[in-house]
Amino acid sequence: MRVRKLTFAALAVAAGLSLTACNGDDGTAQSDGSSSSSSSTSGGGSGSGGSEQGGGKDDSAGKSSAGSGSDAQAKAAKCRTDDLDITAKDSTIDGDDEGTVAVEFKNGGGRDCLLSGYAGVDLKTSEGDLSAERSGQESSPMVLKDGESVFFGVTYPLNESGGSGVKVSSLVITPPNETKSFSVEWPGAATLPVTDGSGSSVKVGPMGSAGQGGAS
């Protein structure tokens, strides 16, 4: 009887130790699995990837906005003398106190170009060169489209003195911001009155100061 009781007690202790060891192994495996899954989510995955993608969209939007702004628009270059067909016609109206010549700039350069300010105008006369003075009218920059024209006026006093006056042969025109000139035959009255030399009696207006109708 004593020996049997000891045997039962030993079996009971062994069974208890075996059950405890089994439960400990299962708990440890579940804990390791849970920790690994959590690390994967916070370390990489959609959280980090979403942040990087968001940054990419912001950069793209900024570049698109800059590209569509005014810096991306082409600016017209200035009109060169060689780009312009320059002609002049008398546009004096009967009864006017002074004569008028309308000068036409027609853009034949194959591209739009920019005109800004006044053209330089000199008259070749029997008494030497006579430079026209600016009329003082406001001048605004303008883009002259390819194939289109703009007109400006040159005004001068009429010779009503009965004398021979000063003979005019040609008109020398220099487009705004250019150094190359172009000469055309003078289409206005044959002579100007003789002046005392105190100042130019010939005036030039800004771009657009003469109408197409006046020059036709």
Rank of each mutant, 00 (worst) to 15 (best):
Met1Ala: 12
Val3Glu: 15
Arg4Glu: 14
Leu6Asp: 12
Ala10Lys: 08
Val13Trp: 08
Gly16Gln: 09
Gly16Ser: 15
Gly16Cys: 09
Ala21Lys: 08
Asp25Ser: 10
Asp26Glu: 14
Gly27Tyr: 11
Ser34Pro: 01
Ser35Cys: 00
Ser35Arg: 09
Ser36Ile: 11
Ser39Asp: 15
Ser40Tyr: 14
Ser40Phe: 13
Gly44Lys: 11
Gly45Tyr: 04
Gly47Arg: 14
Ser51Asn: 14
Glu52Phe: 11
Gly54Ser: 10
Gly56Ile: 09
Asp58Ser: 10
Ser65Asp: 15
Ala66Arg: 10
Ala66Thr: 05
Ser68Phe: 01
Ser68Thr: 11
Asp71Glu: 12
Asp71Ile: 01
Ala74Pro: 12
Ala74Leu: 13
Lys75Tyr: 02
Ala77Asn: 02
Lys78Met: 07
Lys78His: 04
Thr81Ala: 05
Leu84Trp: 02
Asp85Ala: 11
Ile86Lys: 01
Ala88Tyr: 03
Ile93Cys: 01
Asp97Ile: 09
Gly99Trp: 05
Gly99Ala: 09
Val101Pro: 08
Phe105Gln: 03
Asp112Ser: 05
Leu115Gly: 00
Ser116Asn: 12
Asp122Thr: 13
Leu123Glu: 03
Glu127Val: 04
Glu127Ser: 14
Asp129Trp: 12
Glu133Val: 15
Ser135Arg: 06
Gln137Glu: 15
Ser139Pro: 04
Met142Ile: 09
Val143Met: 06
Val143Ala: 06
Lys145Asn: 03
Lys145Arg: 13
Asp146Pro: 01
Val150Lys: 01
Phe151Asp: 01
Thr155Cys: 09
Leu158Ala: 12
Glu160His: 06
Ser164Cys: 00
Ser170Glu: 10
Leu171Asp: 07
Thr174Leu: 05
Pro176Val: 08
Pro176Gln: 05
Asn177Ser: 15
Ser183Asn: 11
Val184Leu: 02
Thr191Cys: 06
Thr191Lys: 04
Ser200Asp: 05
Lys203Ile: 08
Pro206Tyr: 00
Gly211Val: 04
Gly213Met: 07
